[in-house]
Design a binder for these strands. Structure first.
Length: 493
RNA sequence: GGCCCCAUAGUCUAGCGGUCAGGACGUUGCCCUCUCACGGCAGUAACACGGGUUCGAAUCCCGUUGGGGCUGCCA
């Protein structure tokens, strides 16, 4: 009966990026799988770089991904007294010490060691110092006194590799616990908070493995039980380098704006490094049901937008068109461009959803329907050789549209009745064509150009329904006029 | 440079001593078809290299190479 508790502890020094989102996701689903708790902690001890807007972005982005903290969110900046009491304890017990070395001096040391091809480490000048009250009034930091016994090493088990990682203490610096300004450093604050919050398992990025021995030493020095550790590999860009801005979109919020669904991002991120047999499509519920640290990959993974797009199109396809309209409106800043929530818009969205990989793409494809006027682009129109017969057809087609029963176009906001309408338009239209001895294949492109001004559009019956009689007729007339005008133009030469 | 970690197709991965090395994205071809998609079918492509251990190695061990991380009073 061990109550699992995990956490995600980002520093608010940037927007939530996909690497962080994946780490948060792993922590969240691991806790949920085990019936445990997941908590969020904001590590804002770097006063220089932390910003409130980043904190808000992180919380919002996680919420969008359905990753919610089970407890009130902790901010390290509110806990300075707590850290103070523990530092006093370490100082009193001789496990930490004051260091008065100037930054300039340390910089010199470092440069010298690097020049000598040695590992840059603190020389330990102040290790045995017993500072008097006067000296304590001068600038200083507090360092941890690492056990320097010649054979001492620090060992921990990594749950991802399922093996022990051992680091010789001589590789570990007497690292700083409290800065000159009195603010604790990451390695110190993280241990206090994880211990006090009762975190049982720390799942974090690979880049923290070298911090883990330091933290274990602190757990031991403070008399806390250390949690378990699981270091997940990092996400790399297409070039195999660490993911950064130059690889394109990296923040979760940016993906939202570009028309990705949270389900798709969650599904993609969890599969990037974790697997459950051959399953590719996984809902949050399924992920929680099956998730296991044992099935996390040890190696770094390259972020592949193609697969994310595939997942996104999958989730778009499976959504109700009315819901899609809402989602598109959610990411539309300009109130002028908002979509109407009605059956006609839904009809086009329903048709376009299997043709779009993102919500943004879907919205763009909707332009021909939303905009009142359509443009006849020369680069599109020049590909066709129009003739008199086309005008004859359009005239006849207009009559057909006008002759359609008005009842076909009046529908409740129900997708089922929509299908019936489209079916009857299809039947009527096929009758019309066969009576005239025309075929769909030869006439479809002309109609498409008239209605959409593009070579690509949703199926014609669906457009007829969505546009309605009046707009159809208007577009046929405009297009006929356009054809006549280019005919006149051509005849001059 | 030092320390730590990693290594199956272009990419994500399954595999856990005996498999025709499986799936997915991508890509190619075909079918469907009013366009484009969707969908269906088929194809393409991998165990980094070298030593061991073993009757037998993608799987275990060692080395090489390659990649990543850390080496801050950042997290």
């Amino acid at each position: 009966m061990n109550n699992i508790k995990t956490r995600f502890a980002p520093s608010p020094t940037g927007y939530l990026h996909i690497g962080g989102a994946r780490t948060a996701l792993f922590n969240y689903v691991y806790a949920k799988h085990n019936g445990g708790k997941f908590v969020l902690r904001i590590e804002d001890t770097d006063l220089e770089r932390s910003e409130k807007i980043f904190e808000e972005d992180i919380i919002e982005s996680l919420k969008w991904l359905s990753i919610i903290s089970d407890e009130e969110i902790i901010r390290q900046s509110n806990r300075l007294e707590i850290y103070g009491s523990y530092i006093d304890k370490l100082l009193k017990e001789g496990k930490a010490y004051y260091c008065f070395c100037s930054k300039e001096l340390l910089e010199e040391d470092r440069n010298r060691l690097i020049a000598e091809n040695k590992k840059p480490m603190y020389a330990g000048r102040c290790r045995e110092l017993k500072p008097g009250e006067e000296l304590l009034k001068t600038p200083h930091v507090i360092r941890f006194k690492v056990n320097r016994d010649s054979s001492a090493s620090t060992v921990f088990k990594d749950l991802i590799r399922n093996q022990l990682i051992s680091v010789d203490n001589k590789e570990i610096d007497d690292f700083v616990l409290v800065r000159e300004d009195g603010i604790p450093t990451y390695n110190f604050a993280v241990v206090i908070d994880d211990a006090l919050s009762g975190i049982t398992c720390v799942i974090r990025g690979d880049d923290h493995v070298s911090n883990t021995p330091k933290q274990i030493m602190l757990y031991n020095a403070l008399g806390f039980n250390a949690p378990e550790f699981a270091h997940v590999s990092m996400i790399l860009g297409q070039d195999g380098k660490r993911l950064s801005k130059r690889h394109g979109a990296t923040s979760v919020n940016q993906y939202k704006k570009e028309g990705f669904l949270p389900e798709a991002l969650v599904n993609y991120l969890i599969r990037l490094g974790w697997s459950h047999g051959n399953d590719e499509i996984l809902s949050m519920e399924e992920i929680i049901k099956y998730f296991d640290l044992k099935n996390i990959s040890k190696s770094a993974a390259i972020f592949n937008t193609e697969k994310l797009l595939w997942l996104n199109s999958h989730y778009i396809k499976s959504k109700d068109p009315f819901i899609l309209i809402g989602l598109i409106n959610d990411i539309t800043d300009d109130s002028q461009s908002r979509l109407n929530v009605d059956i006609k818009t839904a009809a086009i969205v329903d048709s376009l959803k299997s043709r779009s990989k993102t919500l943004v793409e879907l919205r763009q494809k909707l332009d021909f329907f939303v905009n009142e006027t359509i443009e006849y682009k020369p680069q599109v129109m020049n590909e066709f050789n129009f003739n008199e017969n086309d005008l004859v057809f359009l005239k006849s087609f207009k009559e057909f549209i006008l002759g359609l029963d008005d009842k076909i176009f009046i529908k409740e906001n129900a997708l089922e009745s929509l299908k019936v309408s489209i079916e009857s338009i299809k039947n009527e239209f096929n009758d019309f064509l066969s009576k005239k001895g025309w075929t769909m294949k030869e006439k479809a492109m002309l109609i498409r150009l008239a209605f959409a001004g593009e070579k690509v559009s949703p199926p014609i019956y669906e457009i007829i329904f969505a546009l309605g009689k009046e707009r159809c007729v208007k577009r046929i007339e405009l297009f006929s006029g356009y054809l006549s005008s280019i005919k006149i133009y051509n005849s001059k030469f």
